[in-house]
């Protein structure tokens, strides 16, 4: 029973991890919280639902969803993040925080207005359960976890081993030094916001694949858990964000079994408080983005 729940938690943590790395990369590079991040995932999933309702095939629906995601990412960067960069005071942190909360609310309400304030069945849901080695495994969660692992490994390689990744880390660590080395920080931030929004979009769709439904306000719990995973893991650390997501996913699953589903979110915050008390910088220390 316990092993089964740990397995469920591990598989479910893939979606949390995709959200958490997005939060941590943006915070690591910009020092701002993109509170609309998880809502971008919701929009991506809702866009797929809408596209299929309009008669588009799976490939066209996914392409549309990615295009919408990229567009929203550009809006977030241009309207909420970039304008604050000219401030050196706390406004540089507070302004994007409030602005992205606002963008998130706009996205939620627009989705509710256009598609109704209700849960909608996701067209590519996988609700079957597989028996693997005596464990019952959700096909949707298995697919989600597999895709998340591939994407997270690709992201790790991108950040650690490529010229693009070095430039992102350079911008995160010293923006002026990046400029004098010919790197355009604003462009790097824009690309990074698009990239992380893409991950959020995929996470939103994977939530639909795994749990069968998507809804205008589905982003809120993912935002909270993604943020907690980022903080628990250590802000700016990709591996830390993944570790935090796994911890949350497993504790949630185990807590549901032993303490009931009502206690699920309580334990997430219990973990947060324990980690903050014992290791305030999080489980993995990072400088900038690493």
């Amino acid at each position: 029973m316990l092993l089964q729940q740990i397995l469920n938690g591990l598989l479910g943590s893939g979606i949390y991890a995709l959200y958490a790395v997005g939060f941590t990369v943006i915070f690591g590079i910009m020092g701002v919280l993109n509170m609309a991040h998880a809502d971008v995932g919701m929009v991506a999933a809702m866009a797929v639902v809408w596209a299929v309702m309009m008669g588009l095939g799976p490939i066209e629906a996914m392409a549309l969803s990615l295009a919408v995601t990229a567009l929203i990412a550009v809006v977030i960067e241009r309207c909420a993040i970039r304008p604050a960069q000219r401030f050196k005071s706390d406004a540089a942190i507070e302004m994007p925080l409030i602005a992205t909360i606002g963008i998130g609310m706009i996205l939620e309400n627009l989705a509710a207005l256009l598609l109704g304030n209700r849960a909608l069945p996701f067209p590519f849901q996988r609700s079957a359960f597989l028996n693997i080695g005596g464990f019952l495994v959700s096909e949707g969660l298995l697919i989600s976890a597999g895709i998340a692992v591939v994407l997270l490994l690709a992201l790790e390689l991108l950040v650690a081993r490529t010229s693009f990744g070095r430039q992102v880390r350079a911008v995160a660590q010293n923006r002026n030094a990046a400029r004098i080395m010919g790197i355009n920080p604003e462009f790097m931030v824009l690309i990074t916001v698009i990239l992380t929004s893409g991950l959020a979009g995929i996470a939103g769709c994977l939530a639909g694949v795994s749990y069968g439904f998507v809804a205008p306000y589905m982003g809120i719990p993912y935002a909270i858990k993604g943020l907690v995973a980022m903080i628990v893991g250590g802000i700016g650390s990709l591996r830390g964000a993944v570790l935090g997501a796994i911890l949350i996913g497993v504790v949630e699953a185990v807590a549901v079994t032993y303490f009931g589903s009502q206690s699920r979110d309580v334990w997430v915050f219990v973990i947060l408080m324990i980690v903050l008390a014992l290791k305030p910088t999080g489980l993995v220390k990072a400088q900038g983005v690493a």
């Binding site: 660590q173 010293n174 030094a177 990046a178 400029r179 920080p185 400088q287 690493a290």
Partner: peptide, 24 residues
């Protein structure tokens, strides 16, 4: 012009305090 453009045009700047990337 922005600094990155000036750098690209061919001015190399070694700043006071070195301005390195501490984690690289």
């Amino acid at each position: 012009l922005p600094a990155q453009r000036i750098a690209t045009l061919g001015i190399g700047y070694v700043a006071e305090g070195r301005e390195l990337f501490p984690g690289l």
